[in-house]
Design a protein around this nucleic acid. Structure first.
Lengths: 341, 341
DNA sequence: CTTGGCACTCCGGGCAAGCGAGTGCCAGTG
DNA sequence: CACTGGCACTCGCTTGCCCGGAGTGCCAAG
């Protein structure tokens, strides 16, 4: 009963503060939102909310501002992710449908997210870990020089040059290629790795052993190449300029984080299963320098399993419903596109 | 005589203003720098310099600040690029020598530049336009599916999948590969393009014509692929946080520019021959939103010809001698490394 | 041509007053 | 018991003001 109104008050405070960026007082609150009670009543509620740690006042006798805990409650209980408008959906679809390849999809997504939310957008390239092997090609550039090409289900192509100690004959190479493909084709790369390892003969005396070993090692290295794992696209950094106040305290660490892809990956969070939407508010994150920023992220990828993550980073004082809707919508569309490709 | 001293005064003003970020007056000027004259004399010189447009005062009876024209004179005539210290050179060498491949070289360079200059660093990946063809490989993944691999002198590898209307035989493919390599090997890609075009038989009835055409078209497309041309690495954006004042006016457009690689390329300037150092000050650049930023850039690349450009972007009020020295040093080291590879 | 002197300008910091928004508390009412 | 109106109080922000300091331009003398 009163409890309900208190939550309504909290919601109103969050919405108002996000919109105006100014501490919000009891009077303006009842005016702007249609709560049918007097300012005095709201004051009582606010006092209670403050006791419980959901809001706070920057200085005595100023308006109230939500705390991280307040935002958390707001996100968890006071808002439902509103679906995007039809126009927005069309815009998303038309923009993403024009993408020509994986890189393009990622680039477009990051721009789209930045535009929709007016925040900094981050999109992780699909990781190798869940992708499967579509094809392995071995090409003799010279008798002792191989080009190893690995094509994955995500559309990623990795190629490596291998220098051999000994020359290799075409027939042997062809056989090796067949073997390798039989072992790895269609497998998730982790499984492909073990299957490939099994190919290397224990008998080192065998003439083809060094070649097999070299090729397999190269493939394993290509598969576990962390640099492909960690690739990330960032966009909308210009939106940081809107931070205005709290500059050194907020923007600088964020700019630094944007260049440290390891940090960004940690911010996006562990790849959970499916497309669950994750919201991390202020101090909940792993970096205290970023205690005034929040992250809204989601997994995405073809099929049920989430391949990678995408999301946005912004001030704790952000439009959570809008951001969540945008992130979810983009994640879904990208997943659908990758499914089709 | 007096002319000489005037230039000394201008130099002192630039150095002082860059160091303190505050308009500099006649008295502090004679105190800090060892000009052996009185403040009054300096005032006369300053008045003359202001008449000629080299300096200006933000408001009446404040100190003087260099204009773009003043910086230009300073850069052109009042400073020699001081060589880097031995320690700095060692640091550059040791950092860049650890690079494993082209991407790594670029990544390390951009970080290095950002650290050395404490500005935003920009490095263009070596463009295709000047590189030569090292090898072309054709692989039949299936009778009607070819993998075309193009390896360039810069170490860049481009690969494309080609779907054929008709099947192609191994022997024909081998011959095509030989022909293509004979035509293109070692050529600058522009010349390689014309040579390749000549390979396509005019007689469309010939059975191999469609295949040749498809392969040649693919190679041409890979060579002229603008996206490889425009690749750019950016680093040190966190240094933007030091701008402090003049935020929206300077940082926002710059952040936007950093995401528009086309804009960045234009900022870096046309690839001039050799490793000439280019300095573009404030309004001299093509974008008036960036009228309070300067660019220090240089070409780099193996051999005499400059393949690509790298540089830094910062406020007009920057340490030009230091920046120029850093950019030049990094460009040279990178060139040397690419030469060796 | 340089120098010291002098009057003038103007920014910026410091201080006080007033305003306004907001709060907490209390007593009254349905 | 919850809500409401009223009231005294707090406190930050803005305004106006003053004043010091740094800097300038000009002039007359060396």
């Amino acid at each position: 009963m009163q409890e309900e109104r208190r939550l309504a008050v909290l919601r109103a405070i969050v919405e108002d503060y996000v919109a105006t960026e100014e501490p919000v007082g009891s009077k303006t609150l009842v005016e702007r939102h249609g709560l049918g009670v007097s300012p005095a009543t709201v004051r009582n509620d606010m006092a209670a909310l403050e006791d419980e740690g959901y809001i706070t006042q920057p200085h005595t006798s100023a308006g109230r501002v939500p705390t991280d805990k307040g935002y958390r409650l707001f996100v968890d209980r006071l808002t439902t992710v509103k679906p995007m408008s039809a126009a927005e959906r069309r815009a998303i679809a038309s923009l993403l449908d024009g993408a020509v390849d994986l890189d393009d999809v990622v680039q477009r997504s990051v721009r789209l997210l930045a535009q929709l939310t007016r925040q900094v957008a981050v999109v992780q390239y699909p990781t190798l870990s869940r992708s499967t092997v579509r094809h392995v090609e071995l090409v003799a550039l010279a008798p002792n020089r191989l080009l190893v090409v690995l094509i994955l289900s995500t559309g990623r192509v990795e190629q490596r040059l291998v220098e051999l100690d000994t020359d290799v004959e075409d027939a042997a190479l062809l056989e090796l290629k067949t073997e390798v493909n039989r072992a790895a084709l269609g497998e998730v790369i982790a499984d492909a790795g073990t299957a490939l390892r099994a190919l290397v003969p224990e008998d080192d005396a065998s003439p083809v052993a060094p070649v097999t070993r070299a090729v397999v090692d190269t493939l394993l290295e290509a598969m576990s190449d962390h640099r492909s794992d960690e690739r990330i696209a960032v966009g909308g950094a210009a939106n940081l300029a809107r931070y205005g106040d709290s500059f050194d305290s907020a923007v600088r660490p964020l700019l630094e984080a944007l260049e440290e892809h390891v940090v960004l990956l940690k911010l996006l969070g562990e790849a959970s299963t499916g497309e669950t939407l994750t919201v991390r508010i202020g101090h909940e994150g792993p970096y205290q320098e970023l205690s005034s920023t929040s992250v809204v992220a989601s997994g995405y990828g073809p099929g049920d399993e989430a391949f990678a993550r995408l999301g946005i980073v912004g001030p704790t004082r952000m439009d959570y419903p809008g951001s969540m809707a945008a992130v979810r919508a983009v994640a879904r569309y990208v997943s659908r596109i990758l499914d089709g490709a």
